[in-house]
Design a protein around this nucleic acid. Structure first.
Lengths: 193, 193
DNA sequence: GTGACTGATGTCAGCCACAGACATCACCGT
DNA sequence: ACGGTGATGTCTGTGGCTGACATCAGTCAC
């Protein structure tokens, strides 16, 4: 038998989400989260750089998925085509059966500006890395940054639609629809006025 | 003679930027900023909801400029045309002679993740309001959000280019160039592969 | 003109997020 | 057996931030 229970991080994350959802984010102290799984506050902060971070665990996996998608795109793909491929890979990380969990998490985030701030920041980190991957393919500036930010925007819009009540399409389907809409929007301008 | 010095907010902002730039953000306490202009920490937090906020004053003006631009766009303008008009109005808030100030402020922000987080959050608030203005014109979803986020992205890219060393174009000129690039990027996809 | 009212400020006390320093203590390899 | 390792606990401190209350110059009512 091990000295420490394994999966400490995960238990802290689960406990935190539950406490935030039931009592509210500000009304829950880091020490309470830790104690609720038999640990101390100090240990909480060894696993998470700050209190908000406990809700933002899987960002590396998301980033990697986007990058994998970009790198796997055919050599002759345009930047937006590569972004489309990346979105297909990334949205694959969110199968339909994790919708309830995502929804709960989002209701917590939506109730606290500090958490929204962190979420935006995370997505912006993802966008930066996508930009790097595009530049590595030889895409120039500002095209690489524009395409990367567009990917992040499309993902964000699709994700928030995905967790709406009554929405039944998969995240991937929604994402493709949003990307198509972006194409129409920016590309289909009429003749100059 | 008035009982209190007028312009308290402004003096705090100026002092904060100066102290952050010279000593670093974390090494500067809110109490120090306040004392440096003859006030107390408590008063600092009456003027700014948190320590970071002292660097983010003019967001309302930026938001209003964008909205003004959207509302002033011709009735038959496409969403992206309206966004282009809004960018022209908004970039007008940054004449060339405030480049040094913007640059200094940005060097401070760039050195601290907590400040970058706040900056992203502010821009995302701007984007949300632009989206509202577009929806008020009858633009649907997700087009309104996409166009609004695109406006914010273009502004962000243009702004960071504007304060690069050696850059001499006006913010408006850069912004129009970036917007054109976005149009090319998303619109000019070749035939399907 | 005096007294109530207002609004920006100061004072005081306290909570909590977070961090440095050090001890502990099972486990692991040698 | 033993020293190293890594996750944890304990102790202590700092700074961001807040509520409650006092102050006090100007203002307005009467």
């Amino acid at each position: 038998m091990a000295r420490w229970q394994p999966g400490t991080r995960g238990r802290l994350q689960d406990a935190a989400l539950e406490l935030f959802a039931s009592r509210g984010y500000e009304q829950t102290t880091a020490a309470e989260i830790a104690r609720s799984v038999g640990l101390t506050e100090r240990t909480f902060f060894r696993h998470f750089s700050d209190k908000r971070e406990v809700l933002f665990g899987g960002q590396e996996r998301l980033t990697e998925a986007f990058v994998r998608g970009i790198e796997a795109a055919p050599d002759d793909a345009t930047p937006m085509e590569a972004v489309g491929d990346a979105l297909d890979v990334a949205t694959g990380l969110f199968p339909d059966d994790m919708r309830p969990h995502s929804r709960l998490r989002q209701t917590v985030i939506d109730q606290h500006p500090a958490l929204q701030e962190r979420e935006r920041h995370k997505m912006s980190g993802v966008a930066t890395t996508i930009g790097d991957a595009l530049r590595a393919r030889g895409v120039g500036e500002p095209a690489a940054t524009l395409a990367a930010e567009s990917a992040s925007t499309v993902f964000g819009i699709a994700f928030s639609q995905w967790i709406q009540d009554g929405e039944s399409r998969s995240l991937g389907d929604i994402s493709r629809a949003v990307l198509a809409e972006l194409r129409d929007l920016t590309g289909a301008d009429r003749a100059p006025r």
